[in-house]
Design a protein around this nucleic acid. Structure first.
Length: 942
DNA sequence: GCTGTGCATGGTT
DNA sequence: GAACCATGCACAG
């Protein structure tokens, strides 16, 4: 093909005989970005779609439309947009493609409308993105080296086959919208007349989709999952042409702007974007001048069918494309070496930076593929006409969600979708949240192992405002035409399982393991990941599975995700909660079976997984239930007999229209909430027969009680578990008041003071009192007598250092043989490797900031044993505290109440443990039996 | 002693 | 085995 320059004085068409046309008209755009100049005759032929039959009639590449049989040329750039490559091979003319697409939307089909755009328009429309993210002046000077990457960003989404599959499957997906909006069999002329045919293709708001939308159009494309790889190829090629156009000419930026999409002009920082756009950096060298796009574009997956070897692009086979990760399709010309065509040298030149920099080479890991839903798109875009281009997502780690305020960005994502930064200081980056609020983060990196570690700093306010926690997912999208970065989020409970995770489910990793709870319906198996957290709801499977996936590969040396005691606490809670979640189907009553001492309800029919509620009875004997909104965590009052879905939100509150939105105030006061929470231990959910039957002992270890107990028992000591909110139990809900969640990572953050009156503290304190009173009530005379004797023995001062290994020599000596000395037994059972911090600074007080410490050796396969040990440890600590308290005389009234029964307390606590985990000794008065049992467990565990 | 920062470490992919 | 990345941790303010 001739270069445009060669045609500067004559018709670009080499077959044109008219050497000196009177005037030249613009034809198709060249890869350099310029337009061909054609004589009137050729231009008319081009515009009327007769160019190929006029000038290429003898050329190769003619084929017949599979539908109408019409002879169509598909062997040149001119005809490129007039045909569609079929999945099964062959081609269709655009008219037929339109018809067929409407009749039977092919999710992997291109947008005929888009393809119908006259090439120049398409080229224009597919202009580079305007990124106007920079918040500071420094940003102005910063170039977005990522033209390819941006293209990737733009096109990647459509390559996300998992996402595509997901969206296509949606009944209200955009593909549906597309097909419904797409006029049938629009002729080329009609299409040409369309102000913006693309809007019918891509706009989620077709009626008012501004024409410029498509100008930044990959976003729109991205929201149209039905667009197939062919479409993407078009985009990619056009993108290439665009890039080449910028690279190939020396026009000023202003001139370039003229060729760029209009909308950017409307954006305040458009200049920045254009100027900074990496396209400018691209080199002519990257634009070979072949006639066949495919040969130059070099799609990563060469999948031309034999029938299409003479086709214009050799880029059919969208199936294979769909199987490629996000960047695959654009990578060939955008990102470098993966296409097998583009040389490293080319890439280096093109990107204007050393190839050592891996920018653009973003084979994003699947876990970063955005799985944004329509709902989320809607959430982000609101009612505006914005087009969202999901870029990537990331599940928040504990570090990300912690108070440090640093969100670690996946390197490839950062390099692909964020501006290029050369200095570690990085750039301020404006990011808009889903509510439209704009945040400015510092996008920067740290050198790390000859690489970079990208972070967004200062995200804490944003994270907090979105009430995000570890395990939740943030999504980064670009909103067009503004070109803004948008940070959406998805709570862990809303995460649809990814393909990967579904596969994980199917794989051996999904084999129910210890602690896994299974409902009758395998599809809604509740999961206990290694964190011990049971996925209470089906949609929560992802987070759980994700964690599980991580955990599944953990070696025994993994300290990060090793099952820790806090998880075990949760495991315990979850068992009970799981009972409460599962409800028998209507008119069915479960059988109670004993499995390892634990009462399990056995359902003949599938149980119902419902949302746990609290069902108190008010003063007039009226029963109702309280349920917590999944989204806002507010409690709503509902009729008692309503069976609620596992995911219940305020919007489903049809019983109280005043409180049917999350914005409406909570009916409960804090005090009432306390009562409500406490009710959980006494009132229990509707069901939980097992919990009812084991009453107090289970109560003592149930849910918040457990936490309260541990907090109490720890009394300032550090439990052998980390309290860091890590990804290992990422699915605490907003407002979760567990000890884990109220403690920021690394133990940093505000501590709860003893005088703190927050819900958590109040509840813990109140539970403490309740439990202590309860225990006191249960003590028998004999126990009391025994305890008093023991107490007398314990009156001897304890050396602080001996706390790590309680001496009790008199007991230790006979602990193994004397079942009447549980404390001694515990001493023997003490794990010598267990790290014990020094004594608590809060003697005799409730340490609300209890920070469990990691257990050094915990077998993931011995959950129940570990639970036992955990409780044993907790009890043990409590006893030690009691002893200290006794010896120092620093007693609080509550402790005094139970002090005489130190052993009894231990026994009861242990009994509680026993009961909870199914090692019923049957004799609550003989904790020693339990202790021995624990000993065995511990040894087995260790 | 707390917090923020920057880098190091080591588990995971 | 390299790259990635979650987290640890030393250090400075």
């Amino acid at each position: 093909m001739m270069s445009s320059s060669s045609a500067s004085s004559g018709c670009f068409n080499p077959d044109c005989k008219e050497a000196k046309p009177e005037r030249l008209r613009k034809g198709w755009r060249l890869r350099t970005g310029e337009f061909t100049e054609l004589c009137d005759r050729c231009a008319s032929a081009y515009e009327e779609g007769r160019y190929c039959e006029t000038f290429h009639s003898d050329a190769a590449g003619w084929r017949n439309c599979e539908s109408c049989g019409k002879r169509v040329h598909c062997g040149c750039i001119v005809s490129f947009h007039a045909v569609v490559l079929l999945d099964a091979g062959g081609v269709e003319c655009m008219a037929c493609a339109n018809k067929n697409f409407v009749v039977a939307p092919n999710p992997v089909w291109p947008s005929p409308l888009f393809l119908h755009l006259p090439l120049p328009e398409r080229l224009n429309d597919l202009s580079v993105k305007n990124w106007n993210q920079f918040a500071g002046p420094s940003a102005v000077a910063t170039q977005w080296h990522q033209a390819p990457n941006l293209w990737n960003a733009a096109t990647a989404q459509t390559e996300l086959h998992p996402r595509m599959t997901y969206e296509i499957g949606r009944s209200n997906g955009i593909d549906k919208l597309i097909s419904s909006e797409r006029p049938s069999a629009l002729g080329m002329e009609k299409m040409k007349q369309s102000e913006d045919p693309s809007e019918r293709v891509t706009s989620s708001n077709p009626k008012n989709f501004p024409p410029e939308r498509f100008a930044n159009g990959h976003a729109g494309i991205n929201t149209a999952p039905a667009l197939n790889s062919f479409h993407r190829e078009e985009i990619a090629m056009d993108g290439l042409q665009h890039s080449c156009r910028f690279a190939g000419d020396n026009e000023s930026v202003e001139t370039k702007r003229g060729l760029l999409a209009e909308p950017a002009r409307n954006t305040p920082a458009a200049g920045i974007n254009y100027e900074a756009h990496p396209s400018v950096n691209m080199s002519v060298q990257s634009t070979p001048k072949d006639d066949t796009l495919s040969s130059r574009v070099g799609f990563g997956v060469p999948y031309a069918s034999p029938n299409e070897t003479n086709g214009p692009t050799k880029v059919s086979g969208p199936q294979s494309q769909r199987q490629t990760p996000p960047s695959a399709i654009t990578k060939p010309f955008l990102a470098g070496p993966h296409n097998g065509v583009e040389s490293t040298a080319e890439t280096q030149v093109r990107n204007g930076r050393p190839r050592g920099d891996t920018r653009g080479r973003h084979h994003l890991l699947p876990r970063y593929w955005p799985r944004i839903t329509d709902q989320e798109l809607q959430q982000i875009s609101g009612d505006s006409n914005s087009v969202i281009t999901p870029l990537f997502e990331k599940m928040l780690s504990a570090s990300d969600a912690g108070r440090i305020g640093r969100l670690v960005l996946p390197k490839k994502c950062a390099e692909a979708y964020f501006p290029s930064i050369s200095q570690p200081e990085g750039l301020p980056l404006k990011v808009q949240d889903a509510r439209g609020k704009e945040w400015v983060f510092q996008f920067r990196f740290w050198p790390n192992n000859n690489s970079r570690m990208y972070v967004l700093e200062g995200v804490t306010p944003c994270i907090q405002s979105m009430q995000l926690q570890a395990g939740d997912t943030v999504t980064f999208s670009r909103i067009d035409p503004e070109g803004k970065l948008v940070m959406g989020f998805r709570k862990a409970s809303n995460v649809p399982p990814s393909d990967q995770e579904m596969q994980t489910l199917k794989s051996g990793n999904s084999v129910p393991k210890n602690g896994e709870v299974k409902s009758a319906d395998p599809s809604i198996w509740s999961k206990v990941d290694k964190s011990g957290y049971i996925a209470k709801e089906v949609p929560r499977a992802k987070a759980s599975l994700s964690t599980k996936r991580k955990s599944s590969t953990l070696g025994s040396k993994s300290k990060r995700l090793r099952m820790e005691n806090e998880d075990l606490i949760e495991l315990k809670i979850s068992w009970v909660e799981a009972q409460g979640l599962i409800r028998p189907p209507p008119n069915n009553f479960p059988n109670i079976v004993m499995i390892e001492g634990q009462e399990i309800e056995e359902y003949v029919e599938e149980p119902i997984i419902g949302r746990p509620t609290f069902c108190p009875i008010n003063q007039v004997g009226e029963k109702f239930q309280w349920v917590q909104c999944e989204d806002c965590s507010k409690w709503r009052k509902l009729p008692f007999d309503e069976l609620l879905p596992s995911r219940w939100t305020c919007s489903k509150n049809s019983w109280d229209s005043k409180r049917s939105t999350c914005s409406s105030a909570q009916e409960l006061t804090i005090e009432q909430l306390e009562d409500l929470l406490s009710l959980k231990s006494t009132g229990a959910p509707k069901k939980t027969k097992a919990a009812k039957q084991v009453t107090e002992t289970v109560e003592a270890s149930e849910g918040l009680d457990t936490l309260a107990n541990l907090a109490i028992l720890g009394e300032g000591e550090v439990l052998p578990s980390s309290s860091q909110a890590t990804t290992k139990h990422p699915r605490h809900r907003p407002g979760c008041s567990c000890i884990v969640c109220i403690q920021p990572p690394s133990g940093k953050g505000p501590k709860h003071k003893q005088t703190c009156t927050c819900n958590v503290c109040l509840t813990v304190k109140r539970r403490f009192r309740t439990l202590m009173l309860r225990r006191e009530k249960k003590q028998s005379e004999k126990e009391a007598e025994t305890a008093r004797k023991k107490q007398q023995e314990l009156q001897q001062p304890l050396k602080p250092e001996l706390e790590d290994d309680p001496p009790l020599s008199s007991n230790t000596s006979n602990s193994s043989s004397n079942p009447k000395h549980p404390l001694a037994n515990e001493t023997v059972d003490e794990d010598p490797n267990r790290k014990r911090p020094s004594s608590s600074p809060l003697k005799g007080q409730i340490d609300l900031n209890i920070q469990p410490e990691r257990e050094d050796e915990t077998s993931p396969t011995s959950d129940s044993c570990s639970v036992m040990r955990l409780f044993r440890d907790a009890t043990e600590r409590y006893l030690r505290e009691q002893r200290l308290s006794s010896s120092t005389g620093d007693r609080d009234p509550i402790n005094d109440q139970i002090e005489p029964a130190g052993g009894g307390v231990a026994g009861e606590g242990l009994d509680g443990v026993t009961c909870a985990i199914g090692h019923l000794d049957g004799d609550m008065d003989h904790p020693v039996t339990l202790s021995m049992s624990m000993s065995a467990s511990t040894s087995a565990t260790g």
